[in-house]
Amino acid sequence: MLGEGIVRGLAETARNFFGSFAEKERLTTVQFPEERRVPFEAARNFPFLVYDGDGKESGLRCVACLICEKECPPRCIHIDKSKDKKPDFVGKAQFYPAAFTIDVSVCMSCQICVEVCPFEAIKMDTAFELSTDDRFAGLLWGKDRLAKSNEHYHAIHPTEAAEVDERRGQEKAAAEAKAKPAAQPAEAR
C-alpha cells in the first residue's frame, strides 16, 4: 500500500521519542552548562607547564631544552633560554626558560610537545572555556598563564601523574645515591 513505508518510519520516530524518556541510551545529551560531564582522564586541550612545590617560577620543570619548540608541528611554542643555570630537582644545574610562550590560537592540541619532552615538564590541560575578546594578545600565553602546579596535574590526570611522580622519585633517589660517595670527583660519573 502506498504510504505504508512512511507510516512504518513514523513508528520508529515515535519509538525513539517516547523511548528517550525511559532510556538513557536514547538521550545522550547533557544540559550544559548547568550539567557537566567529568572529562576523561586522557582528555586534552592546551598544554601547560608543570611546577613542583609552591614556586610558580622556581619550581618549573622545564629546562629550556627547546625540543618541544622544534617538534611542535605548527611551531607555536617560543622559548627564550636563560643565560644562567639553576639546580633542578636532582640538584643538577640546568637552564630554565626566561620566557615560554604558546600561541594558542595556532596550537592544535596535538600533544606532540608532551610526548617529546624528556623532562615531564609540559602536559595537557583539560580546561576548555577559554574564550577571549582579544584575538592576539589574549591568545598568546606566557609563562605565568601556562604554569600550573603538580597538584593540578594530579587532579586532572591522576594515573599518569602518579606514574610520573614515581619515575621522578626514582630518578631523584638514584641521583642522591650517586651523590653519597661525594668524595669522588665529578668526572667519575
Partner: peptide, 17 residues
C-alpha cells in the same frame, strides 16, 4: 596570520596586559 612571534609587537602587548 601565521604563528605570532612573542618577541614582536603582539608579544609586548600581551606581556604588558
Amino acid at each position: 596570520d601565521g604563528p605570532q612571534d612573542p618577541r614582536g609587537a603582539v608579544g609586548k602587548e600581551a606581556a604588558a596586559g
